[in-house]
Design a protein around this nucleic acid. Structure first.
Length: 221
DNA sequence: GACTGATCATTG
DNA sequence: CAATGATCAGTC
């Protein structure tokens, strides 16, 4: 699948997927559908990238850089409520002095997002889960301010060398949690006295309350 | 039932 | 190891 040339082409492709099951879509593309996601947690996201023509790979940029759009699949229940938090990006633990919200990776990633809801209840076999109506979102002024407040709180703690004091309980809408292969993975950071330390890699995640708010903005009921 | 900390696959 | 794609699963 070639990358979409325009925003409208991307939206049309995404809209055309709505209502189909993951089994139908993966079959069309000759991709095997696993029984569950326990060993392939990113399978749905990768499938949608393929279907929509996103540039594959592990580049730290938006999925559709030429359109300035990031693709996010989000698991929802029958009522459209998110079942999981949404990973945004890894958190920088070194070299962060002087970094401001306006230039952060979080803000850049979330500046324009194509959300694709997908049924995610584990009682539904993966192949039978349906793709929902896509929505193209940009943060409102209020949403931007909410994310900024959490981001600044978390980044301040990191800058103070207190990364090991941060738990998933910090941040009202944006939280910081481990983002690693396992609990033994270590990366560089700084301690409270400025000394170099090794710690778990972290990532920024959007709480379900926040993403639920986004989805409900589009599906007024 | 919600939430946090842990984890899985794959590619450079 | 770090980045991409996220969900799992035990505990509260």
């Amino acid at each position: 699948m070639q990358p979409p040339q325009s925003e409208s082409e991307l939206m049309q492709r995404a809209a055309d997927l709505a209502g189909f099951t993951l089994g139908e879509i993966s079959h069309e593309h000759g991709i095997a559908c696993p029984a569950d996601l326990s060993r392939e947690k990113g399978w749905v996201g990768m499938l949608l990238e393929t279907c929509l023509g996103a540039t594959a790979g592990s580049k730290p940029e938006q999925d559709f850089a030429h359109l300035g759009i990031e693709l996010k699949t989000i698991p929802v229940n029958a009522h459209g409520k998110p079942l999981e938090t949404t990973f945004v990006c890894v958190a920088p633990l070194t070299g962060i002095s002087g970094v401001q919200w306006e230039h952060s990776h979080v803000r850049h990633k979330l500046s324009r997002v194509l959300w694709v809801p997908v049924e995610g209840e584990r009682t539904i076999p993966l192949a039978e889960r349906r793709i929902g109506t896509p929505l193209l979102w940009s943060p409102s002024r209020e949403e931007d301010a909410q994310l900024r407040a959490d981001w600044e709180e978390l980044m301040d703690l990191i800058a103070l060398g207190r990364v090991n004091d941060i738990t998933a309980r910090h941040g009202q809408y944006l939280q910081l949690r481990p983002k690693a292969a396992n609990s033994h993975a270590l990366t560089d950071a700084f301690g409270a006295k400025g000394e170099p330390i090794k710690t778990l890699p972290r990532g920024f995640y959007l709480r379900t309350q926040f993403t639920h708010h986004i989805l409900s903005r589009f599906f007024v009921s």
